[in-house]
Simulated assay, not measured.
Amino acid sequence: MIRILIADDHTILRDGLKQILSECPDMTVAGEADNGFDALAKVREQDWDVMVLDMAMPGKSGIDLLKQIKSEKPKLPVLILSMQKEDQYAVRSLKAGAAGYLCKDSASADLVQAIRKVAGGGMFISAAVAENLALRLTANAEAPPHTLLTDREYEVFRLIASGMGITAIGEQLHLSVKTISTHKTRIMQKMNFTTSTDLIRYALRHGLIDDNGQATE
């Protein structure tokens, strides 16, 4: 029996995933978490066969949460669940230790296959993400500037692009305003931006935020 921990802050989504998995006799959802701190606590409390992790939750989240989970439970297969189809985000997740990357819009079709694959020691990537990555590699395109940012810089970049201020970003990431300001300066230098407007336009052009200015997860 594959014992699964689902960490996502949306109750409706968790219920939907549980409904899908309830039809699989070899799987059971044995735990749930609705924020990053609760997810980490449950990882510490028990041993799980697979963790399904949303990358955008209240509290500790994203690459930082994934890295901490893998540092404490290196053998735990973590399947990332995200709205983000941009291949660089998947690559960063896999480099941080994820065993798989599943887009939420294909979860109903691919969830069972993805869990079985990572539980068996394999790796899973959503078809949409794999296609984007393959197209970029086939075209042999020069790496876009945002792929050169560190994981933390990339996270700060996307939050700035979504319209969050320095103070709010610091509170969300549990970092000082000075640290966030330093990250912003480095981002602007690396990407050759002059203003935050340049950054937002770039993020829109590359599909890193939607038309309403919200960061795609």
Rank of each mutant, 00 (worst) to 15 (best):
M1A: 03
M1F: 06
I2L: 13
R3I: 12
R3C: 11
I4E: 03
D9S: 03
H10N: 08
L13I: 15
L13H: 12
G16D: 06
S22W: 13
V29W: 13
A30Q: 06
A30T: 13
E32M: 15
A33T: 02
N35D: 15
G36S: 14
A41V: 02
K42Y: 07
R44H: 02
E45G: 07
Q46T: 09
Q46H: 10
Q46N: 09
W48M: 10
W48C: 05
D49W: 08
V50A: 09
V50K: 08
V50N: 09
V50R: 08
V50F: 10
M51T: 01
M51R: 01
V52F: 01
V52P: 01
L53F: 06
M55D: 02
M55A: 03
M57P: 05
P58G: 11
G62W: 12
D64P: 00
L66T: 04
K67R: 15
K70W: 03
E72M: 11
K73T: 03
K73M: 04
K75P: 00
L76Y: 11
L79Y: 05
K85W: 00
K85Q: 10
D87N: 05
Y89G: 13
R92A: 10
R92N: 09
S93C: 15
S93L: 04
L94C: 03
L94A: 06
A96G: 06
A96H: 01
G97K: 00
G97V: 00
A99C: 11
A99S: 13
Y101V: 13
D105S: 09
L111D: 02
Q113L: 10
A114H: 00
I115N: 09
R116D: 05
V118C: 11
G121D: 00
G122W: 03
F124N: 09
F124M: 09
V129R: 02
A130H: 00
A134H: 01
L137S: 02
A139G: 09
A139K: 04
A141H: 14
A141E: 15
E142G: 03
T147E: 02
R152N: 08
E153D: 11
E153I: 03
R158K: 14
R158A: 08
I160V: 13
A161V: 04
G163A: 07
G163W: 03
G165W: 10
T167M: 07
T167R: 14
A168I: 04
I169Q: 06
G170D: 04
G170L: 05
H174Y: 07
H174Q: 09
L175W: 11
I180E: 14
K184I: 03
T185I: 04
I187G: 00
M188Y: 07
Q189C: 04
K190C: 13
M191Y: 08
F193L: 08
F193M: 11
D198P: 02
D198G: 07
I200W: 10
I200T: 15
R201M: 14
G207Q: 00
L208K: 05
I209D: 01
D210I: 03
D210W: 00
D211F: 05
N212T: 03
G213S: 11
G213Q: 11
E217Q: 14
